[in-house]
Design a protein around this nucleic acid. Structure first.
Length: 708
RNA sequence: GGAAAGGUAGCUCAGCUGGUUAGAGCACGGCACUCAUAAUGCCGGGGUCGAGGGUUCGAGUCCCUCCCUUUCCA
C-alpha cells in the first residue's frame, strides 16, 4: 500500500545564500524522497526560509532595507540552486507568511489553554544606545576563565568554557560598543519541565524506530538530567524591536524565532495545499484532513546541531496543541560536512560554495553521487576530500557505470540495429536483478546510501567482468557467433538498465536520459523497471564526462578569487573602449576574454579615478523581447535610478537578480540601443570557461556608494 | 568541566548479536586486452584493527584505564 509522506528539511536561515551543509542535507533528503516516489509512495516534500529573528532584523537595518526586502532577496536566489542540484521540493515557502502567523498564534493559544505557558520576569543585558535587549551573540567581552579578549556572551572560543553573558569581564555591545546594562522584562515560558511533557517525551523519544539510537540516547540524557542539568523551561518570547510574529495577548512581545521556525514546516505545507499542488500530486483532501490522518507520516531531516529543538520542543508543542497537529513520526539526523578534514568556516575561507560549484559548471550529479557514496544512517560527519571526489566519480560513475553502456551499445547498434536478444531466456536474469534490487532497496529505505552505492558498484564490477569474459570484440569478427555476441551485449545492457534504475534516486538526470534516449521509455524509471529486460535500444549518446581536477582547483579558489578581481581591473581599464568591440549586443556588460594581467597597459591613479564605479541595487530585471543575450535592469543608485541593458541573460534568471547588489560604471556615456537607451554598465567577470559572473559587494554596502 | 560519536592498509571507508589466514574502492607495481569520449580484466605488495590491561577455548568485535579527533551543553 502506498505511504503518504510529509517530508521536510531544516529551514535555512534567510540571512545568506545556501552553504554546502544545506545542500548536503537537501541531497540526502531528496535521494530518499525520490526513492520513495519510485516505490509508488505519495510524497509531499516541502521547505521554507527561516526568516525571523534579530540577526536578520539587524542585517536589514545595516543595509538600509526592510527585513521583508532582505528576506525576499534571499528567497529570490533560492530556486536557481535548488533546481541546480535537482532538489525536488514540491513547495518552498517562508516563515514570514500569513500561514505561519496564524499557525504560530494558534499553537500558542492552545498551549496556553493547556496550562503550559507562564510568564516570569528575567534580567538581561540591554544596549542603552541601541535600545534593545541583546542576544548572547551580540555581547562580547573578556572570558572569565582564560581572559581572552572579545569573546562571545555564551562561550569562549579559545578555552571552550560555557558561561552566561553576565559572567563576561568588561562586556560590550557588538552593535554599538556601549556597555550593556541589566534590565528586567516579562518573558513567556513554555513549561517543558511539566510532568506531562516529560512523560510524553520519554515515551515519544524511545518509541522503537522513531529516532536513531544515538539521538534517542542524547534525548534521554536531556530528559533525565538532575539538578543543574535538569530539563529547563523554554523562553519563547522576545521584546520589541524584533522581526517576528506578535504574541496575541502580549503587546510588544514577539515569538522567539525558534518557536515559529518549525511551525514553518506546517505553514509551507498549508501553502502548498492552498496552491493546488497537493491535489495535482494526488492528494484530494484538505490540509487539515491530510495532517490529521493516522496514516500520514511526518518526517524531518535535520542536522545534529538542532536535535534539541526537534526532539523536545517540537514534538511537545505539537502534542499539546492537539489535533489537527500531529507529532513527527521520524526525525532523521545527519552530521556535518567537513572539507579535507577541516570544519568548514566562512571566515577562514575554507569550505566549498555550492553556488560556485554550479557557477563554474560542475555537474551536480557528481556531488549527489559523492555524498550518497559517503552517507550512512548514523550521525557522523562526512568529509569532502577533493582527490577522493575525483577518483570516485571518474572511477565509479564514468569508468564502471557509464562505460558499460558505452562499450556494449555500439555492438548492438552496429550489428543488430538496436535489437536485443537473450540466449536461454531471461528468467534467471530477472531473478538476479530482483535480488539485488531488493538489497539496494533495503539500503535506501534505511538511509544507508553508502551501502547502496557499494552494492550497485559491486554489481557494475560483475557486469564488466562477465562482459570481458565473453570477449564480444572477438565474437564480432566471427559471423557464426552472432547470437553469442548479441546475448553478451544484451546482458550487459540489461545490467546497465538495472544499475540506472537503482541509481535513479541519486542521478535523476542521467537516469531520465537513459530511460528516454537509450531505452525509449516515455517516462522516468520506476523501481519495477529493474525487472524488465529491455528489448531494444537507440544509439548510445555519451552520458557523463569525467571530472577535471582543475575544476576542483577552481572550486577551492576563494570567492574573491584573484582571477576575478584581475579581470574586473583589466576591464575597468578598458572601459572606454569596451562598447565598441567586445560584443555588439552586450555593451552594458564587459565579457571579453580577459587578457593576461601583464598585457594590460598600466594606468595612473588619476586615470582610474575618472571611472565612477558605484554600488547599485537591481530593482527589477526583465527579459527583453527579441534580444538573445540581454536583460533589462533597473538599478537603484541611492539618489537616482538607471536603466541598463546587460548581456547576462545566458547566466542569470531575472527572478534571481531582483534585490541583489552589484557594481556599475555610473559615468559611462549613455548608449542608444535597439531596445532603448542604456545608462551605464554592470560589471561581470568571465573567460572562455565560464561566465559572466556579476560582481557583488560584501554585505553592508548600500546603493550609491562609490567604489575606489 | 559534563556528555556523545569516532580512531581499521598511503587515501576514503565496510566489517550484524565475539569464531576459519582482517575486507572493498582509489592510489601504487606487474601482466593481459582493445569493444568503450580510453576503459576494463587478471595478479601483487601493503594493516601488531589508537595504546595498555582484562574476560574468554577464541576479540577489530565485550569490560576497564589512558591518548587523540570531532561535536553537543537548551
Amino acid at each position: 500500500m502506498a505511504d503518504k509522506l510529509f517530508v521536510t528539511t531544516a529551514l535555512p536561515y534567510a540571512n545568506g545564500p545556501f552553504h554546502i551543509g544545506h545542500i548536503m542535507e537537501y541531497i540526502q533528503a531528496d535521494i530518499w524522497v525520490r526513492f520513495q516516489r519510485m516505490q509508488g509512495h505519495q510524497v509531499h516534500f516541502v521547505g521554507a526560509d527561516d526568516a525571523h529573528g534579530a540577526p536578520i532584523m539587524l542585517k536589514a537595518e545595516a543595509e538600509g532595507i526592510s527585513p521583508q526586502d532582505l528576506v525576499g532577496r534571499i528567497a529570490a536566489g533560492r530556486p536557481r540552486y535548488l533546481q541546480g542540484f535537482h532538489i525536488s521540493f514540491d513547495h518552498w515557502h517562508s516563515t514570514d507568511s500569513p500561514e505561519n502567523v496564524a499557525l504560530s498564534q494558534d499553537v500558542y493559544r492552545r498551549l496556553k489553554a493547556a496550562g503550559l505557558i507562564y510568564s516570569k520576569a528575567i534580567e538581561q543585558f540591554y544596549d542603552p544606545v541601541k535600545g534593545m535587549f541583546l542576544p548572547d551573540r551580540y555581547i562580547k567581552g573578556e572570558c572569565p576563565n582564560c581572559h581572552s579578549k572579545d569573546q562571545y556572551g555564551d562561550a569562549c572560543e579559545v578555552c571552550s568554557t560555557v558561561y552566561a553573558p553576565t559572567d563576561l569581564i568588561e562586556p560590550y555591545s557588538v552593535l554599538t560598543r556601549a556597555k550593556p546594562v541589566l534590565k528586567s522584562s516579562e518573558h513567556l515560558f513554555f513549561r517543558l519541565s511539566d510532568p506531562k511533557c516529560v512523560d510524553f517525551l520519554n515515551d515519544w523519544t524511545t518509541t522503537p524506530g522513531r529516532l536513531q539510537p544515538q539521538v534517542a540516547n542524547k534525548a534521554r540524557e536531556w530528559l533525565s538530567g538532575k539538578g543543574e542539568q535538569a530539563l529547563g523551561d523554554w523562553d519563547i518570547s522576545r521584546d520589541a524591536p524584533y522581526f517576528g510574529i506578535p504574541i496575541p495577548d502580549a503587546p510588544g512581545k514577539y515569538f522567539y524565532v525558534w518557536l515559529d521556525a518549525p511551525i514553518g514546516y506546517l505553514a509551507s505545507l498549508q501553502s502548498y495545499f492552498a496552491s493546488g499542488k497537493a491535489r495535482a500530486n494526488g492528494e484530494p483532501r484538505s490540509f487539515e484532513q491530510f495532517l490529521t490522518a493516522p496514516e500520514t507520516k511526518q518526517i524531518h531531516f535535520i542536522g545534529k546541531d538542532i536535535i534539541y529543538f526537534h526532539t523536545l520542543f517540537w514534538p511537545a508543542m505539537l502534542k499539546f496543541a492537539g489535533p489537527p497537529y500531529k507529532v513527527p513520526d521520524n526525525v532523521y539526523v545527519h552530521g556535518f560536512i567537513t572539507v579535507s578534514g577541516e570544519k568548514m568556516s566562512k571566515s577562514r575561507g575554507t569550505g566549498i560554495s555550492p553556488l560556485r560549484y554550479l557557477d563554474i559548471g560542475m555537474n551536480p550529479e557528481w556531488l549527489r553521487y559523492y555524498i550518497a557514496a559517503k552517507l550512512n544512517a548514523n550521525v557522523e560527519d562526512l568529509d569532502f576530500n577533493p582527490d577522493d571526489f575525483v577518483a570516485r566519480i571518474n572511477s565509479d560513475l564514468v569508468g564502471k557505470y557509464v562505460n558499460i553502456a558505452s562499450r556494449a551499445a555500439n555492438f548492438i547498434t552496429r550489428h543488430f540495429e538496436g535489437a536485443l536478444a537473450y540466449g536461454g531466456g531471461t528468467e534467471a536474469l530477472r531473478q538476479e536483478a530482483a535480488d539485488i534490487a531488493q538489497q539496494v532497496r533495503d539500503s535506501y529505505q534505511g538511509r544507508e546510501f553508502g551501502r547502496a552505492m557499494r552494492e550497485i558498484m559491486a554489481r557494475a564490477d560483475r557486469i564488466n567482468q562477465e562482459f570481458d569474459a565473453r570477449q564480444p570484440w572477438v565474437l564480432a569478427k566471427d559471423p557464426a557467433r552472432r547470437a553469442d555476441l548479441q546475448d553478451a551485449c544484451s546482458r550487459a545492457l540489461y545490467g546497465f538498465k538495472l544499475l540506472s534504475v537503482l541509481l535513479a534516486p541519486v542521478l535523476p538526470e542521467v537516469a531520465a536520459r537513459v530511460a528516454r534516449e537509450l531505452f525509449g521509455l516515455g517516462r522516468p524509471f520506476q523501481w519495477s523497471d529493474a525487472l524488465e529486460p529491455p528489448q531494444r535500444i537507440a544509439a548510445y549518446q555519451h552520458l557523463m564526462t569525467r571530472v577535471d581536477p582543475k575544476q576542483l582547483d577552481a572550486l577551492f579558489e576563494s570567492e574573491a578569487a584573484p582571477a576575478a578581481s584581475k579581470t574586473a581591473g583589466a576591464e575597468a581599464a578598458r572601459a572606454g573602449a569596451a562598447a565598441s568591440s567586445a560584443s555588439r549586443e552586450s555593451p552594458a556588460t564587459m565579457s571579453p576574454t580577459p587578457p593576461p594581467a601583464s598585457s594590460a597597459a598600466s594606468i595612473s591613479i588619476d586615470e582610474f579615478k575618472r571611472l565612477d564605479l558605484r554600488v547599485a541595487r537591481i530593482v527589477t530585471a526583465e527579459h527583453v523581447t527579441g534580444a538573445d543575450k540581454l536583460l533589462k535592469l533597473t538599478l537603484d543608485l541611492g539618489a537616482e535610478t538607471r536603466t541598463v541593458f546587460a548581456g547576462i541573460k545566458s547566466a542569470y534568471d531575472p527572478a534571481t537578480l531582483t534585490g541583489r547588489l552589484t557594481i556599475m560604471v555610473a559615468n559611462l556615456a549613455p548608449r542608444k540601443m535597439k531596445f532603448g537607451v542604456s545608462e551605464g554598465m554592470v560589471l561581470a567577470a568571465s573567460n572562455e570557461s565560464g561566465g559572466p559572473y556579476l560582481l557583488s559587494p560584501d554585505s553592508g554596502a548600500t546603493p550609491g556608494m562609490r567604489v575606489s
